[in-house]
Structures are given as structure tokens and as C-alpha cells.
Design a binder for these strands. Sequence first.
DNA 1: CCGGTGAATATTGCATGCAACATAGGGTCA
DNA 2: TGACCCTATGTTGCATGCAATATTCACCGG
Lengths: 239, 239
Amino acid sequence: MPTERAVNPIAGGSLLAEQAYEELKGAVLTNRLRPGDALSVPALAAQMGISRSPVREAVQRLIHDGLATHVPHRGAVVATVDVEDVRQLYVVRAVMEGLAARLATERLDATKVAELRELLEEHERVVAAGEDEQRHIEMDVAYHRLIREVADNPHLTAALDTIQGKAHLALHSLWRSPDAPRLALEEHRRIFEAMTSGDTDAADRAAREHIDRLRIRLAQTVASGPEPGEGPSSVRAVP
Amino acid sequence: MPTERAVNPIAGGSLLAEQAYEELKGAVLTNRLRPGDALSVPALAAQMGISRSPVREAVQRLIHDGLATHVPHRGAVVATVDVEDVRQLYVVRAVMEGLAARLATERLDATKVAELRELLEEHERVVAAGEDEQRHIEMDVAYHRLIREVADNPHLTAALDTIQGKAHLALHSLWRSPDAPRLALEEHRRIFEAMTSGDTDAADRAAREHIDRLRIRLAQTVASGPEPGEGPSSVRAVP
DNA sequence: CCGGTGAATATTGCATGCAACATAGGGTCA
DNA sequence: TGACCCTATGTTGCATGCAATATTCACCGG
């Protein structure tokens, strides 16, 4: 077991627990900590250079978010998402993104339209340049996040953040389709068109269908390429 | 300030933090702790007869659930839900209960139908007997919870639990309509009919409309009778 | 009578100690 | 060689200590 630490030391300002949480979440979401990896509170505390209290708190928040699971007397481990999990995740996410798009359509103004267009164009560049998967996921997350922000419903935002966090985690293990970014971008554009035309029903439908298609493509990808067997914390690179 | 404790001592078995969380949540949801009440970790720890660590953890979970808010350097206080909060809450809840009903319809079997009918009949007795509000809320919560259970989607369940928790909290402050229980029961029956007839669309619609009507009735109640003034736990009235 | 100032108070958040406990691994015995 | 036991290690979860800090209340001056 290499001493290669998956998390970085904490600066040491205020709210160590918060910083530890962000660091851990980042490590999980960028796949530096992989599903199945152990989250030992003492070990992480040592690596971050802080005591166990804030780390313990951070790990528990991760568990609460569904990004880690608690194995009795074995500590916490980064959550493993199976195909069925993802399916159920996306069924829920579809109706919530639909609602978000609907609400956002009602509250859209010129500023927000510009921001959305901006994001779409940047996403376009990323896709055109064939940049890395990580970057694409970031754009995808950012786009949906902005829609939520426009929708301006904190309860919806909170629920969707949790759902999307788990989905984000799943993408690392499951998403292997090379033209997925292009398709996603296309569907993002369709949502944009519906929203800017003021058609709430169409926006709702477009967002729901986007997530539904994502779910279907994910299922197909998994079905075709059953995933090279990879142990918890082994060394494989993302293809 | 009366020494009247709002929370009970903890038995002392295993997982004190969990027990403390349940105790606190119960106190909040049954209105023994009211919106605005302070949640002092040292005080609660003393009342429960345990140390601060598990209590701190419990309070943080409450905050994460939206049942409490963190006021800087003043400790945590039981969350205050205003009318707008409730409206936004129910907008989200409507689509999620709709999805739950839809999924439940697809997975319904004879056993679950019997359980649902059982609950409805008990609810009927409660309404007929004109029992207390608390009991009615319990029935309402139980009914929706059972639908979720049948729907069998853990992510949907988790999200809805959080949403319903906040809604539950809101009801104490806002629900003053005497015939609300009767109307709710009636709408529960309608959802039941749609589900047992196997019509997923109708079930979805019925559940969504139920929550929407709930939201509208709540808004009307609040608009007509602005609430008998009752302050946090002491003197102030809600502005 | 009222406003301002200072000290006492109570809070949080982090660090650390410690007992209980399950697991893993090695060594022993049949 | 294979199964079993027993110890060593790692973990959790709770208790407690402690510094930093904002609030509150009383008291004093105007």
C-alpha cells in the first residue's frame, strides 16, 4: 500500500470540518478516492494534519450524502454504485430536473439567459476540442446547477445536489461512451431552446427526457462493456 | 426560564448519537421544541445525561435535515418556516409524491394493498372520532411513507423524507383548518383508487393534486387567520 | 431616566484520552 | 497439509479539556 495520499493537508483557517468535507468530497468526485476505498478517520486526519474530530464530522456528512457507506467495525468506505442504483437515481432525477427547468423557465431573465448561453458555448468548445472526461462532467454539472439556481427553490436545490452528487460518482465508473458528451450538449441546447421560448411544459419535458436518455445510454454502455475488473484502490487509469 | 426539559434522558444502550437524534427530532416534530427555540449542546447533553459529542452530532444532523438552523455564535435554533418556505416545499413535494405514487402503482401487490387499506380505515376512524391534530398528522405521514416504501426507490425515499420532515414541522405552525383532516383523507382515498386500478398516470396526478391542494389550503388558512401569537418558547410573538 | 462600557458568561469547534470490540493474521497443533 | 485458536492491531464512539470569541447583563456616568 503506497503512502500516496489521496487527500491534501488542510490550510488551517476556520471551519476545519467544512474544509475537510470539501477536500474529501472533491477526492471522491474526481475519483482520487475510488469506490471501495477505505475512509479511515485516523489515517485521513494524519494526512490532513488535523485532529480526528473534524474528519469524523466530514466523513459522516459524506455518508449522509450517500457518497460513502458505513461498514460496521470496518470504518467508512467510498460508496459503490451499481447499475440498479444508477437507474433508480436517474428516475428520480428526471422528474426533479424537469421541475427545475419548469421553474427556471418562469423566472428566466436576460442575465441568466446570457449565463446559460455562455456555459453552452464553453461546453461546445470542450466537446469540440475532445478534452478530457473530467472537464466535460464539470460542464454538465455546472449547467444543471445553473438551471437550479435560476429555479430558485432551495429545497429542490438541496435534493438535487444530493442526487447529482451520487450520479456524478456513478459516472466515473460507468460512463464509457465516447460520444456521450456530444449527445449531452445537444440535449442541453434543446432544454435551453425550450426555456428561452418560455414554454414551461416543453422545458420540463426536455429536461426529463435528457435525464431519461442519459439513463438509457448508461444502461447500454454498461450492458455492452461490462467494465474491466478493477479492485478498490488499484491503479487503473480512466480510459 | 423554566427548568422544564423538552427532551428526555437517553437510555444508554448503543449509538447514543442516533438516540439523541431521534429524541431531538421527535421533540421538534411533536412541537415540544418550537421554532426559534435554542438548541444548546451543553444544555441538551445535561438533560439527556450524556456527553456533548453525540448531542453535537445529533444537532448537526438536524441542521442538515433543515429542521434547525445554525445562528453564528448563538448556537442552533429550531428552524422557523415561513409561508414562502412552505409553498416552495410543497411545489417540490408534489412532483416527488407523484413519482412515488406512479412507481408504487407499478409495484403494488395484494399485501401492500391490504396495508394501505388498513391505514386508510384507521385514518377514517381517527377523523370520525375527531381526535387530535397530532394523531391525524401521524396518519398522514404514515400513509405517504407506505407509498414510498412500495415505490421502493431509496433515493426517492431519502429525498422525500427530508422534504416531508420540513413540511411536518410547518404544519404545527400553520395548519389550523378544522376540516383539513377530512379533505386529506378523501384525497388519500382517491390516490388509493388510482393506484389499485393500475392507472399510473392517474396515481401520479392524484398524488400531485393532493399536495397541491394541501399547499393551497395552507396558504388560505394562513391568509385568513394569521396565527395565534406564540413565541419561541418564551414571550415573543411571530412577526 | 437612558445610553454606553466592561466583565462575566456561555457558546462553539478542535484536540485528545480511553474503553469496547471486531477483524486479520500468524503460529500451533492434530 | 489443514483447521483452529489466540494475539495484535485497527477501528469506532463517547467523554472531556481547552482556547477563542461573541453575547448579555449589570453597573456607572451623563
